[in-house]
Design a protein around this nucleic acid. Structure first.
Lengths: 192, 192
DNA sequence: GTCTATACAGTGATAGAC
DNA sequence: GTCTATCACTGTATAGAC
């Protein structure tokens, strides 16, 4: 039962935090070895493809986590609560904007091209699940998609602002404002 | 009048695009020399502090540009038009989200700590100018600040989404939604 | 599966000739 | 002000002993 071998799956969450902290380029193999406590050889043993394979494994794990904890609930839970629950889950996961979204950070970075499939899919699935939920909450088709984009933008932008200012209120405020708007299902049109 | 000397100020805009493209870590001196066409020695001649001084000069130039073209108009132009003009300027500058905000990207990155002063000041001044403009447009104090944050988040998040999806509509939609909301000066309260 | 040793390109940075 | 040459160092990646 007590397994003393290091496994690939033990490493992935650590790698995620390291990439968050240092960025893709900044996270050198030396840094990774130091922070994980694993030797360089062990890292290459588990990830023969080197750093690129490590980052890919991290993105895959993040994708799985969001599928289970965010996307599926959006599709399956009753519409009004689903939004509140997503807000709570997102607030916890991103620590009110103090923990960055690795997928979003990669989207801004040069490495985007290497992981474009994963990055695209992450936001596309999140957007689709959210739009579907908003439709069930009463929004007509095109506006539901627009509101979904606004909420995702508020989350990603909220992280940027909170990281820039050191103030978690920015994240909370941006997210709350976007969700409050979405909560008014179709009450008003485009504004004005 | 034809001056054939290379000047520091000629280099800065090029450096900005290079940092945008490769990120801070990814933009090595070799890459910078190649892309600018300047020799390594010339680069160190203009920026004795190396890459850190280059990035600092870029951030300073961006800060100046925004002060003149975004922040000052927000303070000085009539309130309702000022928002429309900012939207147009931002849309052009960020090429509908296909050109990243270097300050926002740095805020997510590890290098944030090195340039925290510049990053903080950029968003603080933008937020203050925008909130002041919204107050003139009829929003009460606390809500004006909150709306300003939402708009900034929509811009930053819109860039992330557009870069992730390759679709400029995400940026436009997020920005339009946030601005439409702000345009309804104090018409409704927090929503719901 | 983890260690040490090592190959070899790329890194930031400097010195001195022109 | 720009060039070539060079520095010590860190980067990724691999090989072979254990």
């Amino acid at each position: 039962m007590a397994r003393s071998y290091l496994e690939r799956s033990d490493l992935v969450p650590q790698l995620a935090e390291i990439f968050r902290r240092y960025g893709y380029e900044g996270a050198s193999i030396g840094v990774i070895a130091q922070e994980t406590g694993a030797g360089r050889s062990s890292l290459y043993h588990f990830f023969p493809g080197g750093k690129e394979e490590m980052a890919d494994a991290v993105l895959a794990q993040i994708s799985d986590w969001f599928e289970v904890h965010i996307f599926a609930p959006l599709r399956e839970r009753p519409a009004p609560q689903a939004l509140v629950e997503m807000a709570a889950a997102v607030e916890t996961y991103f620590r009110s904007g103090q923990r960055i979204c690795l997928v979003g950070a990669f989207a801004l970075d040069d490495v985007r091209s290497r992981f474009s499939g994963r990055i695209e899919s992450y936001f596309a699935r999140w957007g689709a699940a959210l739009a579907e939920c908003l439709q069930r909450a009463g929004w007509p088709e095109p506006e539901a998609r627009q509101e979904a984009i606004s909420i995702l933008a508020a989350i990603q932008g909220g992280i940027v602002l909170t990281r820039a200012s050191g103030n978690a209120e920015a994240f909370r405020s941006a997210l709350a404002t976007a969700l409050a708007r979405a909560g008014r299902a179709g009450t008003d049109a485009t504004g004005e």
